[in-house]
């Protein structure tokens, strides 16, 4: 069975790499990490992931800007995006939902929770 391709966009590289290891260890995922927000759209176009885990606060570009760019590009708009962030404000959650993100997870998070949420989002995706 083909593995689910995940793209993590997060400037916290250590975190992203451990998440990559933990998710890949489950045997169901193949994970790529992009630490620069400005590279996210390009990476999404090239890698064509099944789902993107996107941080919000990043030094070069805001996660919401990346989300907007992804959702307004024909090549990436269908890729589900889950915000994976330390920001827990309601206003951020609302903004993410308004910009059509498919989920919102607040760090820290266990791999089990992460995996379940990814699977639920992908199940909802129109085939």
């Amino acid at each position: 069975m083909a593995k689910t391709k995940i793209l993590i966009v997060d400037d916290e590289e250590n975190f992203a790499h451990i998440v990559k290891i933990n998710l890949e260890q489950t045997g169901s995922f193949e994970v790529a990490v992009v630490p620069e927000a400005s590279e996210a759209c390009k990476a999404a176009t090239v890698l064509k992931p099944d789902l993107i885990l996107l941080d919000i606060v990043m030094p070069d570009k805001d996660g919401f800007e990346v989300l907007k760019a992804l959702k307004s590009n024909d090549k990436t708009m269908a890729i589900p995006v889950i915000m994976l962030t330390a920001v827990g404000d309601d206003s951020a959650k609302i903004k993410a939902a308004e910009q059509f993100s498919e989920g919102y997870i607040i760090k820290p998070v266990s791999t089990e929770v992460l995996r379940t949420k990814i699977e639920r989002v992908l199940e909802r995706r129109p085939s």
């Binding site: 916290e12 250590n14 975190f15 451990i18 998440v19 290891i21 933990n22 260890q25 606060v57 330390a86 920001v87 827990g88 404000d89 607040i106 760090k107 820290p108 998070v109 266990s110 791999t111």
Partner: peptide, 25 residues
């Protein structure tokens, strides 16, 4: 608080994921 939360939660997230890996491996 929101500033601290962001700065502290990110390293906590890394530690948490790291501990999870270590516990399993």
């Amino acid at each position: 608080a929101s500033g601290i939360a962001h700065e502290v939660k990110n390293p906590l997230a890394t530690i948490s994921q790291g501990l999870e890996y270590l516990s399993k491996n």
